[in-house]
Design a protein around this nucleic acid. Structure first.
Length: 468
RNA sequence: GGAGAGGUGGCAGAGUGGUCGAAUGCGCCGCACUCGAAAUGCGGUAUAGGGGCAACCCUAUCGUGGGUUCGAAUCCCACCCUCUCCGCCA
């Protein structure tokens, strides 16, 4: 969410920033709506002020027993109030449109974010670790995995495409990775371990900029069936006189199957625990931010992958359900750049401990997410695919989410409040890390060595062997 | 799911139609007393929006959204949340 006061004062600068992010020029429209809204607000407030004064006088007249005076004043108030609905409507209309426009605009990119259209324009800023020399042709994980218990067939049988069933030691290795990541982030890097809900309400999703624009990317849930709204829906589709019992039953069945959505008890499956962790401070005024609030959680994440039809359909890279250890920081504006660097290092530390080669990419404006000011992606080397693949994304959102969530702090010694900055990063995506371990630590016979740091989580198992 | 109770400032808690942004207590800040501290006394202590160079003024906010009324923390409706008991459940 953007600062309307800033847009009002710097419309050209704002337009330039939005054009940079591929949004059109909107400042004129915003400023006009804002002016119209404030005009209406002022009119309403003036009327309210007069009404309040007159009402007070009526109270005084009544207590004196001067009913004639009271009646005269009542007539006066009626006149004052007559003009209000019109202005209230004008305010509502302007405000709704203004909100709709503002909620759909991406964050302003930081100045040091490179220009560019897509991932090809991202800039490599660092590379770490040595690519392993293979004396055989390394396999891709979808070829390697099934013999080790990565069962794509059963996943598909249960849930459809993009679901996988892990069985045996590979399932344990997956858990070990998550445990290790969580331990490192809490023990070494000072993050507080959290275990948040993964089913959240609209407010949490809106505050972390997943709504309203990206509703299609997440799964939503509902509880039971709201039969009262059902009747409304049925009447809308088909007025009472015109429908047969059969048609009514069909509609009823559609509601039951969720074809017609029941919004009443809706909750969202989080696409990332960034949503739960960040929104945990929504509506708060934080007292002390001299040290950033650092939160981490290992949770399931759910994504519809609506925009990725056909991409990465093979393998474990892009699943509807996956696990991730998330890092979130809440800090003062002056600390967020340093915190962004620190957070990225915390994510990199996992790759280094696992001995996985990676590179750090600074995303160009065209490839950045909606809410980000600046983003680093970490890409891990996959020798089987002979490619770098994203395994972490660390973003500074500045005050963009804080404004949506209304999260503030009190700067030292000041009476006023100011918006915090929020940052989020993966430390790391667990499933993709499993893929990286498989491809980087594979042996010619199809077994996979388990990195040393994971041994203490594996109960004596040091290698994944082919099953049966 | 059934029955009941309730949601008021940082916290506790009063307030059932008018001068209530809201008593009182606690906490916090300042001042006085004191060598210093405690105790005591006095004063202050919400957020947001709009207007003004400023002092300051206006408006809104008592879970949320509607409604009744000249006027709503107070009355009515819907929703959300919390607690207690019963039922069910990992």
């Amino acid at each position: 969410m953007h600062d309307i006061v800033f847009i009002r004062a710097n419309p050209d600068q704002f337009d330039a920033a939005m054009r940079r992010r591929g949004a059109g020029s909107v400042a004129d429209r915003i400023v006009a709506l804002d002016a119209r809204k404030r005009e209406a607000t002022t009119k309403i407030q003036q009327a309210q002020s007069q009404r309040n004064e007159a009402s007070k006088a009526i109270g005084q007249a009544m207590s004196r027993g001067d009913t004639a005076r009271a009646e005269a004043l009542k007539a006066e108030v009626a006149e004052i109030k007559a003009s209000m609905p019109e202005w209230e409507e004008a305010e509502r209309v302007a405000d709704e449109e203004l909100e709709a426009i503002l909620a759909g605009l991406p964050n302003v990119a930081a100045e040091d974010v490179p220009e560019g259209a897509d991932e090809n324009d991202n800039v490599e800023v660092a590379r770490c670790g040595e690519k392993r020399e293979f004396d055989f042709e390394p396999q891709e994980h979808p070829d390697l995995g099934p013999a080790l218990g990565m069962d794509f067939k059963t996943g598909t049988k249960l849930s459809g495409a993009r679901f996988t069933f892990l069985r045996g030691d590979i399932a344990r290795l997956h858990r070990a990775l998550a445990q290790f990541m969580l331990d490192q982030q809490t023990e070494e890097n000072g993050y507080t371990e959290c275990n948040p809900p993964v089913l959240v309400n609209d407010e949490a999703m809106y505050g972390t900029d997943k709504l309203p624009k990206f509703a299609e990317d997440s799964f939503s849930t509902s509880v039971g069936i709201d039969w009262e709204s059902f009747d409304e829906i049925v009447n809308e589709i088909m007025p009472v006189g015109s429908r047969s019992e059969l048609q009514r039953d069909l509609i009823r069945e559609k509601v039951r199957l969720g074809v017609i959505e029941n919004k009443k008890n809706r909750r969202w499956l989080v696409p990332t625990s960034e949503v739960s962790l960040t929104a945990s401070v929504a509506d708060e005024i934080l007292d002390d931010l001299s040290e950033p609030v650092r939160l981490t959680a290992h949770t399931l994440c759910f994504r519809s992958e609506a925009g990725a039809a056909g991409r990465d359909t093979r393998g474990f890279i892009r699943q509807h359900q996956f696990e991730k250890v998330e890092l979130v920081s809440i800090c003062r504006p002056e600390d967020s750049e340093a915190e962004h660097e620190r957070m990225t290092k915390c994510a990199e530390g996992i790759l280094e401990a696992l001995g996985l080669p990676y590179r750090r990419m600074l995303l160009c404006v065209g490839d950045m997410g909606f809410g980000a000011r600046k983003t680093y992606d970490l890409e891990v080397w996959l020798p089987g695919q002979n490619a770098w693949r994203e395994i972490s994304s660390c973003s500074n959102t500045g005050d963009f989410q804080a404004r949506r969530m209304d999260t503030r702090y009190r700067p030292d010694g000041e009476k006023r409040t100011a918006f915090v900055h929020t940052l989020n990063g993966s430390g790391l995506a667990v499933g993709r890390t499993l893929v990286a371990v498989l491809e980087n630590y594979q042996n010619e016979d199809g077994s996979v060595d388990i990195p040393e740091v994971l041994h203490r989580y594996m109960g004596g198992v040091t290698r994944l062997e082919r099953l049966g």
